[in-house]
Simulated assay, not measured.
Amino acid sequence: MSISTGTTRRPGLDLLLVRAGREVERRRRASAAAHGLSTTGLAVLHALLGVPSASHRDLAGAVGLTPATLTPVLDALDALDADGLVTRERDGRDRRVVRIAVTAAGRTRSAAATAAVDRDVAAWLPAAPPELRGYLTRIAEQR
């Protein structure tokens, strides 16, 4: 069945942005997967790069997940490589708190996957003018 309204209407900017976002995400997933990571796993590694360790709850908040949703992501990262990409240890001051840290293997994998994602997305997208990058950054920071 074909739907026709009799007029050809070009997609609005809103729909074009959604479609472009989906394509960027598809490319990000493929690039991360080539390095054995999900995009969520890559986000977790990236969040850990600037801190010695983070509590499970704080890390979940930093990547926009619930603590329960974060657990299987950490399980997968822990299982990658011989020693894992992250470590989990009980906090010495509060045994109820689990602290997560990125390992040297995790730093290496994160750097390689991030470079691949950047390269693959940049190869598809035209160079973004600084004003577009600034606008997109402002939108992303509003959530």
Rank of each mutant, 00 (worst) to 15 (best):
L77H: 08
G64T: 09
T66Q: 13
S55A: 11
L80R: 06
V24L: 13
G50T: 12
R22V: 07
R57M: 02
V44N: 03
V73S: 12
A34C: 03
V44C: 01
G84D: 04
V18P: 02
L48S: 00
G84E: 08
R27H: 07
G50V: 01
L13P: 11
R19G: 13
R57V: 11
A60S: 09
A34K: 00
L74R: 12
A34I: 03
L70D: 04
L48T: 02
R9T: 14
S55C: 00
L45K: 13
A60R: 03
G41A: 07
L74E: 12
R27K: 12
T66A: 11
G21N: 12
S31A: 15
R28W: 08
R9N: 10
P72D: 14
L49R: 08
T8F: 13
L59D: 04
H46D: 06
A43H: 15
T39Y: 06
V44G: 00
A54D: 09
L17D: 03
A68N: 03
T8K: 12
A20C: 15
G84Q: 13
A68L: 08
H35W: 05
H56A: 05
P52G: 00
D83C: 00
S31H: 09
R26W: 07
E23V: 06
P52F: 03
E25T: 14
D14I: 13
P52M: 02
S31D: 02
G84L: 10
V24H: 11
H35T: 02
L59S: 12
S38Y: 10
D75H: 15
L15P: 00
D75K: 15
V73M: 09
E25K: 12
A20D: 13
L37S: 04
A79Q: 10
V24I: 15
T69P: 01
R57N: 05
T39R: 08
H35R: 15
A34M: 01
P11V: 05
D14K: 07
P72H: 13
A76I: 09
T8I: 13
A68W: 00
